[in-house]
Amino acid sequence: MSDGTLAKLRIEAYTDSRFNNQAPVPSLVVPINPAKYSRNGRISYTDNKAAGAAGASPVFDRMEPETVTFELVFDATGVVPQPGGVNSRNGVADQIDALRAVAYAYNGDIHSPHYLKLAWGSFLFKCRLQSLDLTYSLFAPSGIPLRARATAAFVGYTDEYLLQAKMKKSSPDLTHMVTVQAGDTLPLLCHRIYGNSRYYSQVAEANGLTGFRDLRPGQQLIFPPLAGPA
């Protein structure tokens, strides 16, 4: 149940593709929630028909990653309280710098920008920044920008380990991803996947669980293969 506090869009940065290690930069909580966002998916097909053929016979190739686009507004006119409750003398520059540090800046330790988590209420999206367009629209007499709109497009990210799991093949020698239902236990799920409940400790370790009872409905678990590569 909500406590009445307004949930704000939060952008968290990570340094690994499994989203286990948070980057040493502050997460960004946007001062103004977006009025809307778009979420798009795409399926790629191939068509081997000869040129000039009437019609097409598309053959499934792959699922393209989803993309999510937000328009974020940053304001330093004094109308909107600034992070920390203090209006910035630098206009919106500090807020834009914070956005860049989280999502756009190159991290030399991982040789790329950060892996990102977008969290807003029930919305959770693991991704990487694809593009960032900034538009400045209001200025102080000194020329310092006081308002900016950032159109940020994010492309969904799933590491190879999870991609194998999402295929949901039936063999116990392949990786599986399972969504926990009410009443599920780790030994029961292991018996369902592997035909034997004794692998629960390995599954707990693979998912970073401190105990085999640490399950909650809706949680997604990885069940690694019994043999062979993930």
Rank of each mutant, 00 (worst) to 15 (best):
Q220I: 08
S44V: 14
R18T: 06
A51P: 00
S38C: 01
D214F: 11
Y157G: 02
N21M: 09
N196E: 11
L209D: 00
A23H: 03
A98T: 03
Y106H: 12
L132M: 12
D173W: 12
Y161N: 13
Y45M: 08
N40P: 00
S171R: 12
A140G: 08
F60D: 03
A50H: 10
L129N: 01
R149F: 10
R128P: 01
D109F: 09
G228P: 08
G183W: 04
P81F: 10
G143L: 06
L6Y: 00
S88L: 09
Y104W: 14
G41R: 05
K117I: 14
A182M: 00
A76M: 05
D94S: 13
V59W: 02
N207H: 04
D16T: 01
Y115V: 01
L6D: 09
V155H: 05
Y106C: 04
R128H: 08
Y37P: 09
T175F: 05
F223E: 04
A50K: 14
I144D: 11
D75Q: 11
P224A: 08
T158E: 14
V29T: 12
A227L: 14
M1A: 13
A56Y: 05
A204I: 06
S2N: 13
G218M: 03
V155Q: 15
A204P: 09
L118G: 02
T77S: 07
H111Q: 14
N196G: 02
Q181M: 11
L28T: 05
S57D: 14
A153V: 14
V102I: 07
S131Y: 06
L215A: 06
S122L: 12
F19C: 00
V80Q: 08
V59A: 12
G91F: 02
G195T: 07
L138F: 11
H191R: 13
V59Y: 03
D133C: 03
N48V: 05
H191G: 13
Y104E: 11
F123A: 02
P26N: 09
C127W: 02
E205H: 13
L129W: 04
T5N: 11
P141S: 09
V178P: 02
V79E: 15
T15F: 00
F123E: 12
R192L: 09
Y199E: 11
G218A: 05
R192C: 01
S112I: 00
L215D: 05
A152P: 00
R39E: 15
H111G: 02
S2I: 07
P187H: 06
Q22A: 12
E160K: 12
R198P: 00
V68Y: 00
G85V: 13
G55V: 08
I222Y: 03
R62F: 02
V180F: 10
M1E: 11
P113C: 07
L116S: 04
S2F: 10
T67G: 03
N20I: 06
K8G: 09
A23R: 01
K168Q: 15
R10V: 13
G228R: 07
P81T: 09
Y199K: 11
F223I: 03
K166C: 05
N207A: 03
R198I: 14
N33M: 09
A230H: 15
E64Q: 07
A101I: 09
S142Q: 11
N90I: 01
P31L: 08
P113T: 08
F19W: 07
P26S: 06
